[in-house]
Simulated assay, not measured.
Amino acid sequence: MTYNSMTVQRAGQALLLLFVMVLIVSGCDDSPAGATQEDVAVETTTIAQTDEFLSIDVQIPTFIGFPGADSINQLISTSSDLAVAEIMGAALMMEQNEISNKATLDGSYLCYSFPEDDLYSVWITMANYTGGAHGISWIESYTFSAASGKMFAFSDLFEDAVEGPAYIEEKITEAISASGDFFPGAESELSKYQGDFPFYINGNQIVVYFSVYELAPYAAGITFFAFTDAALADLLRPEIAEAIRGRQPIV
């Protein structure tokens, strides 16, 4: 275990953000080990700080041991840096205006690995409060091959890059139409993705998700649509279908 620190400034005071690295060998969860093509590992980086106007408690992954790891890490780091900068700005505003509240940022991640099939999927859940009636939460996800460093787009999961996403959009549209929990006309929001939906793989499920307020009111939170291996058996690329078949989701 190693420790690093970075000092940042707010209102003339030095704040310490503590980065805690914990090395985890053999992948990013407790999935069965297999014949891996790459020596994949993940480090958990914790960013933490608390004072009168600020509370940060974020864990993000840092991947090592395969081509493309640096690129994925850069995407994750850039995103978390932006989230931290936003919350620091909100804390400064609260301090300057003597608002008796805290700006908060919390984050954690989960990862499902299919090492024998060279498939890895990680999703990071973040939640912040910058003032107002309530905070907001969001997800960022990354699915990749360790051997090639390739990042999977949603269409890459399917044998037919058009037919597969179109089927998913049709099923989500049906679910929205059958429920009273969504905004009127929420189905029209799906077309803007042009089939490139945000997703992660959790066991035998392909999970498509949408941000708070995107399809439904705040109370609905992040909206998830999970599709099992059985439901997509005829649409997934054979290697993807084989990798996820019969796996148990971790959440």
Rank of each mutant, 00 (worst) to 15 (best):
S179W: 09
R10Y: 09
A161F: 00
P198W: 02
T7V: 10
A69L: 04
Y142N: 01
S108P: 03
A11Q: 06
F183D: 04
P217S: 08
D234E: 14
Q74C: 03
D229G: 12
S108R: 13
L235H: 05
P249K: 07
V25S: 10
T2C: 06
A90N: 09
N4F: 11
R237L: 05
E86F: 01
A219D: 12
S141Q: 11
P184T: 06
G180R: 07
D229C: 03
V208L: 05
E140I: 08
M126I: 09
M21D: 13
A166G: 11
F144I: 01
N204H: 15
F63Y: 14
A243G: 03
K102Q: 15
D160L: 02
I124K: 07
F114D: 11
M6I: 15
A33M: 13
A83G: 06
L54R: 02
F63Q: 03
D181G: 15
A33I: 13
F144M: 01
T7D: 10
V40L: 08
L23M: 09
Q205T: 07
N101Y: 06
T228P: 02
T104H: 08
V20L: 11
E169I: 06
I176A: 04
Y167L: 05
F158E: 00
Y120P: 06
Q205D: 14
T223G: 05
I56W: 08
K171C: 05
S188Y: 13
T173I: 05
R237W: 03
L17M: 02
D29I: 09
P249N: 12
S145V: 10
Q37A: 05
A216Y: 07
D117H: 13
A233K: 08
D156G: 02
F158M: 01
